[in-house]
Each structure stands twice: as structure tokens, then as C-alpha cells.
């Protein structure tokens, strides 16, 4: 009886696990299959090197270089803004705050990570974009910069929690010895905690970059969604927002429909590279 139960359970667990893992293969295969139809008409190198996106025009006007660049640009702006602030906050949290308030702040940061992206987009649109237009007289508040700032806020919790975790360990390990030498706290943090957290800072950067490139709603609501070569202060387009905006309109089976899948495919490849990189950083790299 017990043996049978155990055996059946083992089979169910194995099947469910296998199914879960196959989901990744399914996702990639489905996206790839739908993209393939498009890549037979427009070769992939043309798709990612061409600069025109016009779903109503001829097939050779379906290419996404500006959109790829837009995706990367917005994320990079986000990283550049979020990294110093996130790392700085992690330093404060790990080395300057007592246990009790630390726990409270960590939960608040977790909650920040739980705010839906549509809320970030909403606040970004109503506050940031308006501010750019009304106070700074930008021709268009919807811009790479706006997208980058919104993304930066969204990246903060990831950067803070990844860095805080290792810095906290570092601080606890070394603070006693360091204090025994009579060295100031800030000196010790600068000379020991920060340099030894390089690895986690790098991991946080890659993680946040991946999040940023894949983000849809928050970015879509503040960048204006124009498929042109990205400039810091003008409108742009990213792959996720392109898909979200146009998929509903694209006729199922049309070239436009398949082109959007191809966009998704390119995005997945870009992100898989980023994630595999992250995996190796966490497991192999030893800085």
C-alpha cells in the first residue's frame, strides 16, 4: 500500500516537474515557430539591421533596429541612474542601520518591488512626463529619459536587495576586526565592504538590465512609442511595448503578426544571453 502510494507520488512529481521544465521549451518553440514564417520572407539579419518599421508597407519595411536600440538605451539609462542610488542605499542598509529598522526598510523595499509596473507607468506619465513638458519645456515629455527614470525606480529594489544581502554578510564578518583597529566605519566600508561586493553589484546590474529590457507597461506608458532612432530626449519604442501595442491590431497569420513574434524572439534571445551570463556570474565567477 505504502509502496504503491510512494511510487505513484514519485511518478506524479516527476511528470509535473518535467512538464514545468518543458514549458520553457514550449515557449521558445512556439515563439520560434511563429517567427520562422516571417524570417522566411525577411531574413533575420535584415530584420535586426533595417531601420524602418511600417506594418502597412511592404515586407522590407518591417525591421526593428531602432526598436532594439531603444530597448537597450532605455534600460541603460535606467541602470546608470539606479545603480549608484541602489548601491548607496544598500550600503546604508547593511552597515549603518540597526537590525529592527533594517527589517522594516527591507519589507518596504520588497513592497516597492511588488508595485505593479502599470502603477509606475501611471505615475511616470502623470508626474514625470508632465514635469518635462510643463516645467522644462521639452517638445515631448515622453522620451528615453522618462522611460529610463521610471525603469530606474523599478530596478532599485532588485539592486538594493541583491547588494544588501552580500554587503550585510561582509559587514558582519569584518566590522569587529575593523573596529578593533580603530578604523572609522566609512573607511572600512569603502576599503572592504564595497570592493568585496563587486560580484553582487555586477550580478545586480545584469539582473536589473534584464528586467529593464523585458519591461512592458511602465515603459510603454512614458516613451511615446515612435519607432525612430532613439535619442535621450525624444520619443522611442521598445520591443515589449511594440508587441503589447500592435498585437491586438495585427491580423492573425498576417506578416505583421509574425513580425511581432519575431520581435519577441529577438528579445528572448537577448535576454537569454543576459540570464545565462548572470547564471555563470553567480556560479563560476570569482572576483
Amino acid at each position: 500500500m505504502n509502496n504503491l502510494q510512494e511510487r505513484i507520488f514519485k511518478i506524479i512529481i516527476r511528470l509535473l516537474t518535467l512538464f514545468s521544465l518543458l514549458l520553457l521549451a514550449f515557449i521558445i518553440i512556439f515563439i520560434f515557430r511563429e517567427s520562422l514564417v516571417f524570417f522566411e520572407v525577411v531574413p533575420i539579419y535584415k530584420f535586426i539591421s533595417g531601420t524602418k518599421w511600417n506594418p502597412l508597407g511592404p515586407p522590407d519595411q518591417l525591421s526593428i533596429l531602432p526598436i532594439i536600440l531603444g530597448t537597450v538605451y532605455v534600460s541603460l539609462v535606467g541602470i546608470v541612474l539606479a545603480l549608484p542610488i541602489g548601491v548607496g542605499t544598500a550600503v546604508v542598509l547593511s552597515s549603518y542601520v540597526d537590525e529592527r529598522p533594517k527589517r522594516v526598510i527591507r519589507s518596504v523595499v520588497d513592497i516597492l518591488a511588488g508595485i505593479p509596473s502599470v502603477i509606475y507607468g501611471f505615475v511616470g506619465l502623470l508626474v514625470l512626463v508632465k514635469f518635462f513638458e510643463i516645467k522644462l519645456f521639452f517638445p515631448s515629455g515622453e522620451s528615453v529619459l522618462a522611460g529610463g527614470i521610471v525603469l530606474a525606480v523599478m530596478m532599485l529594489p532588485y539592486i538594493i536587495s541583491t547588494c544588501d544581502e552580500s554587503m550585510d554578510k561582509m559587514y558582519k564578518e569584518y566590522s569587529q576586526y575593523s573596529q578593533a583597529l580603530g578604523v572609522s566605519k566609512s573607511y572600512m566600508v569603502r576599503k572592504i565592504v564595497l570592493p568585496r561586493s563587486k560580484k553582487s553589484i555586477f550580478a545586480a546590474t545584469v539582473l536589473a538590465l534584464g528586467r529593464g529590457m523585458g519591461e512592458t507597461m511602465a515603459v510603454m506608458m512614458v516613451i511615446g512609442n515612435a519607432p525612430i532612432m532613439p535619442k535621450l530626449l525624444s520619443k522611442t519604442q521598445t520591443i515589449p511595448s511594440l508587441i503589447a501595442l500592435e498585437m491586438g491590431m495585427a491580423e492573425v497569420g498576417s506578416l505583421h503578426y509574425h513580425a511581432l513574434f519575431s520581435g519577441g524572439f529577438v528579445l528572448v534571445i537577448m535576454l537569454l544571453i543576459v540570464n545565462i551570463l548572470l547564471y555563470f556570474i553567480e556560479n563560476k565567477m570569482d572576483i
Partner: peptide, 24 residues
């Protein structure tokens, strides 16, 4: 391998999951 796959799944952007859900 399981860890790698789970990690990759975590990295797939939600809009691509939307695309997947839409076709499948």
C-alpha cells in the same frame, strides 16, 4: 539543469509569456 531552466524562465519577459499564451 533544473536550476538553469527555472532561472531562464524567470528571465522571460512577461509580454513574451503573453505572446505564448496568446498562440498556445
Amino acid at each position: 539543469i533544473i536550476h538553469l531552466i527555472v532561472k531562464c524562465m524567470a528571465g522571460i519577459p512577461s509580454i513574451v509569456l503573453g505572446l505564448f499564451g496568446y498562440t498556445l
